[in-house]
Computed example of a mutant assay.
Amino acid sequence: AQRAAPSVRELAWDGSTVTAEPSRSGPPGVILAAIFAEAVTDLLTASDMGKVRECEAADCVMLFQPAHPRRRWCSPTRCGNRARVARYYQRHKPPVG
C-alpha cells in the first residue's frame, strides 16, 4: 500500500522560509491506504511496541497503547463505562423470585 502512493517531500516557499512537506499523489483511497500502512509500520517498529494491549471488553477487538500501566480498555468512556455499568448491575441486581 505504501508503494502505491509513496510519500515525497515537496518544497514550499511561504514568502520567508522554505519548508518540506510530505505529499502523496493518486486516488484518495490509495492515499488513505498508504497513510494507514505507514502508521502500522511506525507502530510495529516503535520501541514501545511491547506495551500494545488488547482491550479487555468482551465485545471489543481494538488494540491500544496505555498511557497508564493499569489501563484495561481502549476507551474509558466507551468500553470502560460498559464494564463498570455491568459490574454495578451484577452487584445491585434485584433478587429473583
Rank of each mutant, 00 (worst) to 15 (best):
Glu56Leu: 11
Arg24Lys: 00
Pro94Trp: 00
Ala57Ile: 07
Ser23His: 11
Arg72Pro: 03
Arg53Gly: 04
Lys51Ile: 02
Ala86Thr: 07
Glu10Cys: 13
Arg70Phe: 09
Ser16Tyr: 13
Ala86Pro: 07
Val30His: 02
Val8Tyr: 11
Ser47Tyr: 02
Pro28Trp: 02
Glu38Ala: 13
Ala37Gly: 06
Arg91Val: 07
Gly15Met: 01
Ala86Glu: 03
Ala20Trp: 00
Thr41Asn: 15
Arg72Ala: 06
Glu10Asn: 14
Ile31Met: 03
Leu43Asp: 12
Arg53Tyr: 02
Gln65Ser: 14
Ala46Glu: 04
Ala12Lys: 12
Ala34Ser: 12
Leu44Thr: 05
Thr19Gln: 14
Val40Phe: 15
Ala4Asn: 11
Ser47Glu: 08
Tyr88Ile: 01
Ser75Thr: 03
Leu44Asp: 09
His68Gln: 01
Lys93His: 09
Ile35Leu: 09
Ala57Gly: 10
Lys93Ile: 02
His92Pro: 06
Val8Ala: 14
Gly80Ala: 02
Pro22Met: 08
Val52Asp: 08
Gln2Met: 15
Arg70Lys: 12
Pro69Gly: 06
Glu56Cys: 04
Pro27Tyr: 11
Arg9Ile: 02
Val40Thr: 13
Arg70Ser: 15
Lys51Gly: 12
Ala1Trp: 07
Ile31Ser: 01
Ala39Trp: 10
Gln2Val: 15
Ala86Met: 05
Met49Ile: 15
Ser47Asn: 11
Ser16Cys: 13
Arg70Gly: 12
Arg72Trp: 03
Cys74Ser: 09
Arg87Asp: 12
Arg24Gln: 03
Arg82Lys: 05
Leu43Ile: 15
Gln65Arg: 13
Arg53Val: 01
Val61Asn: 12
Ala5Leu: 01
Lys51Trp: 15
Ser47Gly: 01
Phe64Cys: 09
Phe64Tyr: 15
Gly26Met: 07
Gly80Lys: 06
Asp14Gly: 00
Thr17Trp: 13
Ala37Trp: 08
Arg84Val: 06
Arg87Glu: 08
Thr41Arg: 14
Arg91Asp: 11
Lys93Gly: 00
Ile31His: 03
Asp14Gln: 03
Met62Asn: 12
Gln2Pro: 04
Glu10Gln: 15
Arg78Ala: 15
